[in-house]
């Protein structure tokens, strides 16, 4: 149990996917303009990431390792993610139209979100057990949502700031992200690993 809590906190704050592994930067810069859309994106990513990590773990350990097919790792994982996103999209559209309204447009974007594939690959290199992997995926998604939400909050305020011409748009967003990463470095003493 202790192990699981440690993984949760370390993935959520200390080794945050966005700010210390640079995973999922594209949606992080693209969708963090409004708080509302960042919540939708965060929920969609958390959901798909948890599912993708779970299924990738099963495939890696039950199929690839058993039949000595490790060289197919990348192809298998990306296919899992792409088909998962497709299935989730169809499922949500069928059963909850209100959820589909809020998540719908973000789902196709998730396939190319490197955070999802990244988490699946990290899970293999870190040699996690099944439940550790599930928690890892879930907390990774939550950490992504957390940073996305903070960033959206900052950027909504930033609209009112007087930014020098050359820094407008992408540069000031990147610098803000840099400062955010500096702040998150303060968590690094929380878990020693």
């Amino acid at each position: 149990m202790n192990e699981l809590i440690l993984i949760f906190i370390s993935t959520l704050l200390v080794n945050n996917l966005v700010l210390s592994y640079f995973l999922g930067i594209c949606p992080f810069l693209g969708v963090s303009g409004k708080i509302e859309s960042s919540i939708g994106m965060g929920m969609a990513v958390t959901f798909v990431m948890t599912m993708a990590t779970t299924i990738s773990w099963l495939i890696y350990h039950l199929l690839l390792l058993k039949f000595d097919l490790i060289f197919l790792e990348y192809v298998a994982f990306i296919l899992v993610i792409a088909s998962l996103v497709q299935i989730v999209e169809m499922f949500i559209r069928k059963f909850s139209s209100s959820l589909y309204q809020s998540l719908g447009i973000y789902l196709p974007l998730i396939t190319t979100n490197c955070a999802i594939l990244g988490v699946a690959l990290f899970m293999v290199t870190k040699k996690y057990e099944f439940f550790e992997a599930v928690i890892f995926g879930f907390s990774g998604g939550l950490g992504f949502s957390l940073v996305l939400l903070i960033m959206a909050g900052i950027r909504e305020e930033l609209n009112f700031a007087d930014v020098p011409g050359n820094f407008k748009g992408a540069p000031i967003t990147l610098i803000t992200a840099g400062l955010l990463a500096l702040i998150f470095m303060g968590f690094s003493g929380l878990v020693s690993s």
Binding site: S20, N166, F167, P171, A181, L182
Partner: peptide, 24 residues
């Protein structure tokens, strides 16, 4: 800090703004 993640964001931010400056 330059080798750490935070430095990556900062340097890239300044490079993009330098690029904008040249282009403008």
């Amino acid at each position: 800090v330059m080798i750490l993640p935070a430095g990556a964001f900062l340097v890239l931010g300044f490079l993009v703004s330098a690029m904008n400056c040249i282009e403008n």
